[in-house]
Design a protein around this nucleic acid. Sequence first.
DNA 1: CATTTTTCAATCATAAACAATCAAAAATAA
DNA 2: TTATTTTTGATTGTTTATGATTGAAAAATG
Lengths: 250, 250
Amino acid sequence: MLTPERHRKIIEVLGEKSVVTIQELVEATSSSESTIRRDLSQLQKEKKLKRVHGGASLTHQKSEELSVFEKSDRNSLEKQRIAQYAGDLVETGDCIYLDAGTTTLKMIPHLKDREITVVTNAISHLEALSEHEIKTYLIGGLVKSKTKALVGSSAIKNLSSYRFDKVFLGMNGIHIEAGFTTPDPEEAAVKGLAISLSQNAFILADHTKFNETSFSKVADLSEAIIITNEIDDDVIYDFQDKTEIRVVTP
Amino acid sequence: MLTPERHRKIIEVLGEKSVVTIQELVEATSSSESTIRRDLSQLQKEKKLKRVHGGASLTHQKSEELSVFEKSDRNSLEKQRIAQYAGDLVETGDCIYLDAGTTTLKMIPHLKDREITVVTNAISHLEALSEHEIKTYLIGGLVKSKTKALVGSSAIKNLSSYRFDKVFLGMNGIHIEAGFTTPDPEEAAVKGLAISLSQNAFILADHTKFNETSFSKVADLSEAIIITNEIDDDVIYDFQDKTEIRVVTP
DNA sequence: CATTTTTCAATCATAAACAATCAAAAATAA
DNA sequence: TTATTTTTGATTGTTTATGATTGAAAAATG
């Protein structure tokens, strides 16, 4: 296996799992431990990952102080766990909506081998979906070139012709009074509609999103179930009057 | 095997695999290691690939250039000219439909700097469209994982809500009696509908498509204008009774 | 805390891949 | 045809990547 191929594989595995052991990589690439160690050193130098004892973990591109480094690492792992939990909720035969966003993207590997149908507004999810052989519908609409998501009135019209068993969304702000919020009004409209199209709407959010508000309101707290993890008990206490909140324990 | 042929082959293999070993190329071209090494050096100098120990890997290129190389046919230049002619037909303010396919993809660089709106069913065109900052709508529908095009009843429904100044389509077969044909029935349905949504539908086809028929009928010859080049005079004579045919001269 | 186990970086021999060179073969020109 | 240039494949010594081995360092265990 050639070096760039190996590197790509390593990054790919990390993208799906957030943390990986050297042994796993040795197997995945059928090369020796020494080689993997060298690869990891190099990729670390290129800031593509962070070495940890026994393997490697994702790193966020932000090159700030060390504590922040660790924090963003933990977030990614957090997202990973949330994504896995959410993925496990999906049952054979379900028709689900998958919103654009990094957490929902991480759900895809966990949707494998169930005969489900996915509807999405995220062009960036298509590759992973097709890799895992999942039947996929894209809603129509204006292509937002920055985020590669579909928005606009035509997206709304198109989306409203579907109904879902379950809906999974990312969210930027979750607040007791402001409810669910997100920066972009157009994306907010799409998210809000998606929530209303299913009896089971799930918001995937790590702890950093709580008590934050963003520009555009998507929905009231009561309209969707929150999936999160590593959150203070008093925060849960505050929210559980307003909506169902599920905490994923590691 | 001739040098340009070898080079094309190398790029083609790379397009499919991203990374390739020298040994694989030696086999694929039945030439010696030395020759392949020389080829790789040269192609690297031309920025077409990047050499790595043991072989070569893709460099990041603009999407339309990439797919130009993927198709290793000598018709590539022909398609290029047709695409340019078609691109020049588009006027400021136009709203056009761009079908999936290699020739229509090549139109995109020629659409620059006019304030147009593009509607397409081709996910593979999005990157190039966004690179050239063209306002783009995607129709909704089922994602066909092989061709990355949108098809199905939902695509049809979605597409039928638009009207276009001009429509540009690729086509597999053009035949005096069978009309316009293409292998996939689902894609044929989308193409056929697109043609009916504009007063100006253009079929982009190099000379190899003439007097060929494929499985699914898209439309009658009279429904669209054919753009082609390098075609025998007697073929033109046959067709010009049935429809308008424009020959792009180099 | 001491001990055991695992993981690590450094070193080294080996095998693979490399650039450079050269002669034969093929293509082109005279 | 012959002469000249270009392309090719084999050979050379050199460089690079790899995997095994080692003792040191770090976690895990008791």
